[in-house]
């Protein structure tokens, strides 16, 4: 194996994790044109969901937990909040891996909607428990809607990475 192939292999193997870190970092980018935070939408959920179905070894539970911790530190949430939600998403998806892996694209999309819906609902309860206040429901629906709508694009990117990883694994 030449060093170039080896570098490519490492690059693609760490790409799902790097993509998650990049998406978490994007949530910290200040947006000046909108009164809402467009980049705060948790697109990282799509990457976790996708790789929990197709490559749980490359983006394993330990890495998902670390991404969650990183997100907690960066966004100002209580430490453990996002790591809990992301690990739970990984857990739920991985439990239904066989069904979701064999499902059509539409089936996977619906599965994503259901899984992420549960995560949003749990986050809603956790926020109410921790901070003793509710969250703006419209904002939650907005985030949920955009995450679901962005699934085809994000899944395409993840699919591309998955294909390249397949060439090396």
């Amino acid at each position: 194996m030449t060093s170039s192939v080896s570098t490519h292999r490492i690059f693609y193997l760490i790409s799902p994790f790097s993509l998650c870190v990049f998406l978490v970092l994007l949530t910290g980018v200040p947006i000046r044109s909108f009164s809402f935070c467009l980049l705060c939408i948790p697109f990282v959920y799509t990457v976790i969901y996708y790789f929990a179905i197709f490559r749980p070894i490359v983006l394993n539970v330990g890495l998902v937990f670390l991404i969650g911790l990183f997100s907690d530190i960066l966004t100002g949430s209580p430490i453990g909040f996002n790591s809990f939600l992301m690990t739970l998403l990984f857990f739920m998806t991985n439990l239904n891996r066989r069904i979701l892996g064999n499902a059509s694209f539409l089936g996977q999309w619906i599965g994503f909607g259901l899984n992420v819906g549960v995560i949003f609902f749990i986050s809603f309860i956790l926020i109410a428990l921790i901070s003793r206040h509710g969250i703006v429901v419209s904002q939650t629906f907005f985030d949920y809607f955009f995450v679901i709508m962005s699934y085809p694009i994000m899944a395409y990117v993840c699919g591309f990475l998955n294909k390249r990883i397949g060439e090396f694994v």
Binding site: G28, P30, C37, L74, G76, F81, I127, I130
Partner: peptide
């Protein structure tokens, strides 16, 4: 402004 922290909290 260098960064934004936007969480439900």
């Amino acid at each position: 402004v260098l960064a934004e922290n936007n969480s439900p909290f």
